[in-house]
């Protein structure tokens, strides 16, 4: 059995917990319970014969009072940078977090999720932001914990990347 640790990082209330809930339990709730510390879930994914046990570390969101502890990231085989598409600054948070994570644990596969894609009208990710993103050459997936859009794809892609790494 192969096990891999994956972390969810991002600004607060970007939908980290919701994405995990959607992926692991296929449920979604509008109610916001902020995560304190870290919450752990797991999900078994299959690639043909290959079974992979994903241990998901849903880490509390970053805000001005609380920085994400890099020690939680230790030993991660991959991570998600979760951005709330309706709040531009969460993208900046993701940029700075990516830098810190890489400094702490080195280069491991990661995917940036532009979450809350269902809120099209409120999107603050403009062309400039998209341009900045495409410059970085990162894997970016638009998703929504609410509708389930892109969720399976995001986790599947990251899992593959980790196995290839």
């Amino acid at each position: 059995m192969i096990q891999k640790k994956i972390c969810m990082v991002g600004a607060f209330a970007t939908g980290k917990t919701s994405l995990v809930e959607r992926f692991v339990k296929s449920i979604y709730s509008n109610i916001y319970h902020t995560t304190v510390g870290v919450k752990i879930d797991k999900k078994l994914v299959k690639f043909g014969e290959q079974e992979l046990n994903l241990i998901l570390w849903d880490i509390h969101g970053e805000d001005e009072f609380q920085k994400v502890r890099m020690s939680y990231l230790r030993g991660s085989s991959g991570y998600f940078l979760v951005v709330d598409g309706s709040r531009r600054y969460t993208l900046e948070t993701a940029f700075s977090l990516q830098q810190r994570v890489e400094d702490a644990i080195g280069e491991v596969p990661f995917i940036l999720i532009l979450n809350k894609a269902d809120l099209i009208d409120e999107s603050e990710i403009d062309d400039a932001a998209m341009a900045e993103l495409s410059q970085k050459n990162w894997t970016v997936i638009k998703g929504s914990a609410k509708t389930g859009l892109g969720v399976e794809e995001a986790f599947g892609t990251l899992a593959k990347k980790m196995l290839e790494a």
Binding site: Q3, K4, K5, V38, I40, D41, K42, N53, I55, W57, R74, G75, S76, S77
Partner: peptide, 25 residues
């Protein structure tokens, strides 16, 4: 480093939680 569960043993007649989660936690 990873907090991953390498091995888990349980005494007889003990109800357990998910070892993977406990280990990471």
């Amino acid at each position: 480093e990873t907090g991953l569960l390498l091995q888990h043993v349980v005494a007889k007649a003990v109800t357990t939680q998910d070892g993977d989660l406990v280990s990471a936690m």
